[in-house]
Write a protein that binds this DNA or RNA. Sequence first.
DNA 1: CGAGCCATTGAGACCGGTCAAGTTGGGTGG
DNA 2: CCACCCAACTTGACCGGTCTCAATGGCTCG
Lengths: 249, 249
Amino acid sequence: MTFISGQVLAVDGARCEHCSLHSRCLAMGLEGEQLAGFDALLKRPRPLKRGEALVHQGDRFSNLYAVRTGSLKQVQVHGDARDQVTHFYLPGELVGLDGIGSGECAGNVVALESTYVCELPFLQLEALMQDSHTLQHRLFRSMGEELRDHQRMMCLLSGRTADQRMASFLLGLSERFRLRGYSPACFYLSMSRGDIGSYLGLAIETVSRVLGRFQMRKLISIKGREVSLEAMESLQLMAAEGVGRHSGS
Amino acid sequence: MTFISGQVLAVDGARCEHCSLHSRCLAMGLEGEQLAGFDALLKRPRPLKRGEALVHQGDRFSNLYAVRTGSLKQVQVHGDARDQVTHFYLPGELVGLDGIGSGECAGNVVALESTYVCELPFLQLEALMQDSHTLQHRLFRSMGEELRDHQRMMCLLSGRTADQRMASFLLGLSERFRLRGYSPACFYLSMSRGDIGSYLGLAIETVSRVLGRFQMRKLISIKGREVSLEAMESLQLMAAEGVGRHSGS
DNA sequence: CGAGCCATTGAGACCGGTCAAGTTGGGTGG
DNA sequence: CCACCCAACTTGACCGGTCTCAATGGCTCG
């Protein structure tokens, strides 16, 4: 009994209100029966092994997922071998919003390491939102934020140099870790160089070279997938820096 | 009286249910008092002259806008002169969704020609959604579709050649016109070459060269801003075509 | 008619992709 | 414990697409 509960309950039995990510979750701000309703509709954390898929591209969309621990990538497949990473998900983030439009999952979502996610049936979520203005508002906010992030990404991909893309990427991760209470200067990259390259629109060799360059200039130090940002200001400067390409008018 | 009503009423006085875009609008599927509520909350079409701004980056977000006629571009400004076009809006499309997340407008939205938009106060929209599951669902769908579009765009910008980007862009416009009942083969580009270049992450000279190349190959014919797609299959082939750059594994 | 914007066209440079070897490191089996 | 393998990563040389700079033509508007 205690044997079973040991590792399972720690993650599995916790109610939303006790979740360490509560403040970053959709459920934030819910109270009383609405929180209870939310608690009731979500399926308890589901474990994924590294490399295991949460959903596949083209699957019927029916759930959102909140990342509890670990991380995932979303991969868009285009006929040929032209896979493309479109998203990385960290704890507290919501997976699947892009399926709401078409009713099917927009890409394969794959765990980058051992990962737990909470499953939120969307139909029930919609129903619950009818009673909870707060929940409705929060979900709209989440989608709006994701739209904004995508726009930033589009700006990044369009007309910025490899160095600028990488600097933005590292700073973006740093910020996301900071918000979650981890060190913003020192973290582990759960994704491969290939994933990073695909995400940033760079060849894997370029990723490697840029990271090497950064290290030489003492902007970062990196060993394998353990990275630490040594000169964040310089990175910020580089990321924001004037013109990357086509200066515009 | 009739003098005034002539051009104003034609656009201004129409109820939602009589709007020619009704089937592509948020209001689609609403009936009875919910349609009336929607009708009541929206401010009647507002005219914009070419080059006039609908909202400015950083403005407090408070409305969505539905394009009635004309077209607009959204421009992201980054400190320096590095403007970047992130979106083109056609009739029936919803402007401003990306402001929901942060509470402020994500970019300047500027009319590309004489344009009418309907203004939808978001607070009232949220309230109305509490009573109308249909409306709530439709707005979520709209946001989901935009997320999806953004992902497609990210894939386009990352690792596709100039030719492929341009082909996708033209086909995308074509499809959007088709859905609105216009000719998918023959249309007017309300945006400048510079806007297209900024949107596609290409230098303006490249845009010009690619279009020239397409014309030489008899894929399109273009004179100024009037374009007609002569060989859509070839364009589709080109857009989807195997590997643009970094082939991936 | 000149000013100014938009678009086209050419020549040259450079960033980043591609190809091709290495190198490292973790896991497996003898 | 070592040999081996495979995947991930690094490094170098070369090449090509696209940016940049510059000059020119066409259109619109004052």
